[in-house]
């Protein structure tokens, strides 16, 4: 089995991604993600020197929109899709902790 990613890494990543994994899934993902990362060894081991990164394939810049009002959504239509709405709001279970 690959040593690129450990079970602990998988558990940590699952928590960051808000996914709950069974023990079997943790094992399976540890192995499968390891395979993909093994394959990515060709990229990881590359000497890329000072090649700049390309986050976006097109050289577009400065695309903006004018500061003009556009009609908003109908609240009824929006909240009709909410799993739980109350009093014009989206309702959620208690939130523990502040915004980071």
């Amino acid at each position: 089995m690959s040593e690129r990613i450990t079970r602990d890494d998988v558990v940590h990543v699952a928590r960051l991604a808000r996914l709950q994994l069974s023990e079997a899934e943790i094992d399976r993902f540890t192995e499968q993600l390891g395979d993909v990362l093994d394959h990515a060894e060709d990229v990881e081991s590359l000497d890329v020197g000072d090649i700049p990164p390309t986050a976006h394939p097109l050289p577009l810049v400065n695309v903006t929109r004018p500061d003009e009002l556009v009609e908003s959504l109908d609240r009824f239509e929006l909240l009709a899709q909410a799993p739980f709405a109350e009093d014009g709001h989206f309702r959620v279970p208690p939130v523990l902790g502040e915004q980071p």
Partner: peptide, 22 residues
């Protein structure tokens, strides 16, 4: 600004909840 950062909704949030949204 008149509108939000990424959409044309009003930059105004004292209105009824979830009305300046898209």
């Amino acid at each position: 600004t008149v509108t939000k950062l990424f959409c044309g909704c009003a930059n105004e949030f004292t209105s009824d909840p979830n009305t300046n949204v898209c």
